[in-house]
Design a protein around this nucleic acid. Structure first.
Length: 490
RNA sequence: GGUCGGUUAACCGAGUGGCUAGGUAGCGGUCUGCAAAACCGUUUACGGCGGUUCGAAUCCGCCACCGACCUCCA
């Protein structure tokens, strides 16, 4: 199997040719959300980027195992000793729910939203709470190798010792001395040998709800452990691609690298891919900043900053129109432009299906196809891919207007091309189709009911009865009222 | 303060040392009974100052501004 896909590896900071470890299999691990509130626009970005990657790899013929975790154990709200309460527990207390009810509630909307965005589901969606044993096993391994220490029932990763043998900070470009001098001094860290050490296992306070027994204490796993444990379980000690948002690079992914390397004695991830942030008024959109717009709000238009609702495909197109390593700034103007652009593309698809073949063609579909692959192979450059597709749109419209010609073969090729790239790889779909048909049907029935009323007015009862009967057979019931007639579906 | 990244026309957003990205909006035209759509043409660009080069928005340096990470975060 051959490909020419170059992806930007955050670890080497270079575009590298993608070569999977065990062809034709590809292992892809992506950090999913912590489910304690509704998914917002920012969550859509990695979902769509890695869906694009998943779809493209599948298209190239790889067998992809796509693992995307759900963090349902929660992270500490603040690190001050004793006051730390994890976000899920906090939400559970606020909403008077079981922690797992909180998790389920927001996991359900997350799934619904991602389906609306037309992302393919991952192959495995493991949850942190379901892998406590695996996480404990990993802690034991790290302890055995001497890269962790136990204090008062908690286990901490010994960064300094790790850094003596390996290189802590290689992904995010941190230097340990800098970290030492720059890290804020926080209270309650006296258990740690160094401020940059991080917890693998935390002893739980008595009032803590989510806790499990372990050799060290009744407690809960550390913040970064789940990804190391679950990626190893489902993809192996070494696997191809690990993805996530740029904001996770440090400390989350850095700690993951340290944990896995400490336990297995080797690097686990071959290609790190990080998507950039979505900003709003130039600032990162984040739950903790309170400046987010949820996907449900975008789809319904129910948010003070939204001038109108935006459909899931508009959001998808909007995100695909920017390269994943750039920030994208939210604005109504930009989303409206995306909406129009998507409409233009979809309209061209239906125009294409109506085109008549001529005996000659002035369009080089082979060349276009090449350029499309080139764009994707160049670090998944979806905006450039779209710009190439719009060249074809222009040509299709010209043919439709009679200014250009396309032959049978060209027509077939361009249909295939559109099908592959627009629907198959970019994962777009025509949202107007169903709605239009629905609407059209309604209007057609209105006309028929109107004509029946005319017949009734002329006392042409056989005609009006025939219409009523025929419609009934189709499941449309006419209800005569004093001033005209209504209809409804059975 | 440390590390990293960004600054492209009205808006969004690509980009290679020399060749019109693309989308949206605007303007003019073609088509059309009217309108819409479509098509053709078209106006505002590469933060500032230097340097390298025959030539730089693209490479280098300095400056300005913005942002991300350094705490949970997609």
């Amino acid at each position: 199997m051959q490909n020419n896909l170059f992806i930007y590896n955050s670890l080497s900071k270079k575009k590298e040719l993608f070569i999977p470890l065990h062809e034709p299999f590809v292992g892809l691990y992506v950090c999913g959300p912590t489910v304690y509130s509704n998914a917002h626009l920012g969550h859509a970005r990695p979902a769509i980027l890695f869906d694009l990657l998943d779809r493209y790899l599948l298209h190239l013929g790889y067998k992809v195992r796509y693992v995307r975790n759900i963090t349902d154990v929660g992270h500490l709200e603040d690190e001050n000793a004793g006051e730390g309460e994890d976000r899920i527990t906090k939400k559970a207390r606020q909403e008077k729910l079981e922690p797992m009810e909180v998790v389920q509630k927001y996991l359900n909307t997350y799934h619904k939203n991602l389906e609306q965005l037309n992302t393919l589901p991952p192959s495995i969606e493991p949850r942190a709470s379901g892998h406590i044993i695996e996480q404990q096993e990993l802690i034991k391994e790290i302890l055995d190798k001497g890269f962790a220490y136990v204090v008062n029932g908690s286990v901490y990763f010994d960064v300094l010792k790790y850094n003596g043998k390996y290189n802590y900070g290689k992904l995010s470009g941190r230097i340990l001395e800098d970290l030492q001098s720059n890290t804020r001094v926080l209270d309650g860290q006296d258990e740690k040998r160094n401020s940059f050490d991080f917890a693998l296992w935390k002893k739980a306070a008595p009032e803590h709800i989510m806790k499990w027994p372990s050799p060290w204490s009744i407690g809960f796993p550390g913040w970064h452990l789940e990804c190391s444990a679950m990626s190893t379980k489902y993809l192996g000690e070494e696997f191809d691609i690990h993805g996530g948002g740029m904001d996770l690079m440090f400390p989350h992914h850095e700690c993951e690298i340290a944990q896995s390397t400490a336990a297995h004695g080797k690097e686990s991830v071959r290609y790190w891919i990080h998507n950039n942030m979505i900003t709003i008024n130039g600032q990162k959109m984040a739950r903790s900043l309170g400046n987010f717009i949820t996907l449900d709000q975008l789809f319904s238009g129910d948010h003070p900053m939204l001038l109108q609702p935006y459909s899931p495909m508009t959001i998808r197109f909007f995100i695909l129109q920017a390269h994943y390593r750039s920030t994208v700034d939210f604005s109504n103007e930009a989303l409206q432009a995306a909406e129009k652009g998507l409409q233009k593309l979809m309209k061209a698809v239906s125009t294409l299906n109506k085109l008549k073949a001529a005996d000659s063609s002035a369009f080089d579909t082979e060349k276009l196809k090449e350029k499309c692959y080139e764009a994707l192979n160049d670090d998944l450059n979806s905006p450039v891919l779209l710009s190439h597709l719009f060249e074809a749109v222009k040509f299709i419209n010209s043919v439709s207007d009679g200014n250009e010609k396309i032959d049978e073969a060209g027509l077939k090729a361009i249909k295939e091309l559109f099908n592959t790239f627009i629907f198959g790889i970019l994962g777009l779909k025509d949202e107007t189709k169903g709605k239009e048909d629905e609407h059209l049907t309604g209007e057609l029935i209105n006309i028929i009911v109107d004509l029946r009323q005319d017949a009734k007015n002329r006392k042409e009862w056989d005609v009006s009865d025939k219409i009523r009967q025929t419609l009934k057979e189709l499941g449309i019931v006419i209800k005569d009222r004093k001033d005209g007639a209504d209809w409804e579906r059975e």
